[in-house]
Design a protein around this nucleic acid. Structure first.
Length: 211
DNA sequence: CACCAGGCAAGTA
DNA sequence: TACTTGCATGGT
């Protein structure tokens, strides 16, 4: 196949079907979830988000008004709760400093918005790209541990490779389409969870078996 | 019991 | 620059 990256996408899509990502009702919820899910199982994140929803705290104004130590208690199930409470507060401050509303913060062009997200202590490349793609609807490809593991096990990348190098592999092989990027990353997570676990080096029935 | 989950920043040499 | 460590809950 000429374009392996596109070939893999088609195999995954045919196998799993559409994933309907990101699980979240509003861009704000998606953004908060992106921080909470850092190195953490999504099940734990949903419990934390539910705590916030129950107290009507899952909005820019209400969350900004909540003291950081109370925020930490609300998001306890997500793990690293003290750290993540600070990270969320850092992000809210950055939004206040660049527009004040989530809409105006997201209104910046992709490169500018990515830089502003990366300025926040606690937001690295994956979280920034997740927010760009799934909350702000900008075509920024998300690379995560699953993406790396799947590509490495299929000998498409070396083990030691940087985030931007993997991202470039996708952006240079695909049309710059947020809908496509959205689906592709979601499919990688689905594949990783079911067929490419860290503890299961070989997996049978993997849709990429013949790659 | 050990290991893992949709990372990131700070410390050390 | 290149490693290492801290952060933490909940499921398997």
């Amino acid at each position: 196949m000429h374009n392996k990256i596109l070939n893999i996408y088609n195999l995954l899509y045919d196998f799993f079907g559409p994933q309907n990502w990101w699980p979240g009702e509003t861009p704000f919820e998606v953004m908060v979830g992106a921080v909470l899910t850092q190195n953490t199982n999504w099940n734990n994140v949903t419990a934390a988000l539910e705590n916030l929803k129950q107290d009507n705290l899952l909005a820019l104004e209400t969350l900004s008004a909540l003291p950081v130590h109370l925020l930490a208690e609300k998001i306890r199930p997500a793990g690293y709760f003290n750290l993540k409470a600070k990270r969320l507060k850092n992000l809210l401050t950055q939004i206040q400093n660049h527009g004040g509303s989530l809409e105006s913060f997201f209104a910046a062009d992709k490169e500018t918005l990515r830089e502003r997200l990366l300025e926040v202590k606690g937001i690295g490349p994956e979280t920034a790209d997740s927010i760009l793609l799934y909350a702000a609807d900008q075509a920024s490809f998300v690379v995560d541990a699953y993406t790396h593991r799947v590509l490495y096990r299929h000998h498409l990348i070396p083990e030691e490779v940087g985030y931007l190098d993997i991202q470039e592999l996708f952006t240079s092989s695909l049309p710059e389409d947020p809908v496509l990027f959205n689906e592709y990353h979601a499919l990688f997570v689905r594949l990783g969870k079911e067929y490419c676990k860290k503890s299961t080096p070989r997996c049978s029935g993997c849709p990429l078996e013949k790659i």
